[in-house]
């Protein structure tokens, strides 16, 4: 009955957000459009990470590694092997998921706290492998000249390049979010929600816990791989430095701000955090200001946001607002699992 009363509001809000985000690019200039694309790519990564943290209770500090794997796979396939970009993108997504399965199979048996360190280690290993495999990746100097996305003879280039990328990203974001929404409402999704409440309970209820965790991990990696592939085509130059550990932390912050396990929250979290960081960068750079100021500001904000969110809004920004609205409308349950408590 909660659904019936709440659905209209959520539906209209979602529709408004969709229409608005669809119209926004028209009003943006090229550099703003670039920001738009980067936000969209972050939303895709965060949508996966949020699912992983919210439902499988795993903290990944290596999401940027999957982003990097997607980017490098797409780049190498198109540039060195001349595979059509769209096919490369699909292959990059699939390959990242396969890597995640191979890595996750042993790692996901670990306790939550261990996995955070393990994924961090995984990212460092991936970065050093990329740096060492010079023949394939160009090593630390990176890979320039990655072709742009194209379908047959139609390539995204010219005056409207960024504009078109903005819409490509929008379509991908919409697809990922809708997929997440349907996933959570499906039968496996109910199992996932049981998993979110209590792993032992889910296990007892016959939910294949290890397999579900692995699948969510692979899905989150696939999203990151997809976003990474688009990133490579969009910026046409990648290097290990494009995928620092800090990027993983940034994804984590976005997921935490949006609310772990909150599907629309990942869009909100990614947008808010990205714009905040952009704002700080522009505030911190200017004549007469110390050159370290942007770095200082972003570190301080990263730290503060993470700590404050975890202490005071552990369910995330969007669910907190939703909760307030629904409380006002005398409707209780928020559709996101507050699952932090489950981990030992």
């Amino acid at each position: 009955m909660n659904r019936l009363r709440r659905r209209p509001l959520a539906f209209w809000a979602g529709l408004a957000a969709a229409v608005l985000s669809l119209l926004v690019p028209i009003a943006l200039n090229d550099s703003q459009l670039t920001v738009y694309v980067f936000i969209g790519l972050s939303v895709i990564v965060v949508a996966g990470l949020s699912l992983l943290m919210g439902f499988a209770g795993q903290v990944s500090l290596g999401q940027a590694a999957f982003y990097a794997i997607g980017a490098y796979t797409a780049a190498i396939l198109t540039r060195a092997l001349e595979v059509p970009p769209l096919l490369s993108l699909a292959a990059a997504t699939a390959f990242t998921a396969v890597v995640a399965v191979a890595v996750g199979l042993p790692l996901l048996r670990l306790r939550g706290h261990y996995l955070a360190f393990a994924t961090l280690a995984f990212q460092l290993i991936v970065l050093s492998v990329i740096g060492e495999a010079r023949g394939l990746t160009g090593g630390d100097t990176g890979m320039p000249g990655i072709p742009t996305l194209s379908i047959g003879p139609l390539a995204i280039q010219g005056q409207y390049r960024t504009f078109i990328y903005a819409y490509v990203t929008w379509v991908l974001v919409a697809a990922v979010l809708l997929f997440n929404r349907n996933l959570v409402r499906s039968r496996p999704g109910r199992g996932l929600r049981a998993l979110a409440t209590s792993e032992a309970g889910a296990l007892a209820a016959g939910v294949p816990v290890v397999r579900y965790k692995l699948q969510v991990f692979a899905l989150s990696a696939a999203y990151a791989g997809l976003a990474g592939g688009v990133y490579a085509f969009f910026v046409s130059y990648i290097a290990p430095g494009s995928f620092p550990v800090l990027l993983s932390v940034q994804f984590l912050i976005m997921a935490a701000v949006g609310g772990l396990g909150s599907i629309w929250g990942s869009a909100v979290g990614a947008t808010v955090v990205y714009l905040l960081v952009q704002l700080l960068q522009s505030l911190g750079t200017g004549p007469g200001l110390p050159p370290q100021l942007p770095a200082i500001l972003s570190y301080a904000v990263y730290g503060l946001v993470l700590v404050l969110i975890m202490l005071f809004l552990p369910q995330g920004l969007l669910p907190a607002i939703q909760g307030r609205i629904s409380a006002r409308r005398a409707v209780s349950a928020v559709e996101s699992p507050a699952r932090l408590a489950r981990l030992d």
Partner: peptide, 20 residues
Amino acid sequence: TPPLASLIITLGLGIGSYAV
């Protein structure tokens, strides 16, 4: 404060300490 939240908080403090 659940342990998982505590873990993320220590991570946040680690990053924040860079600024200091």
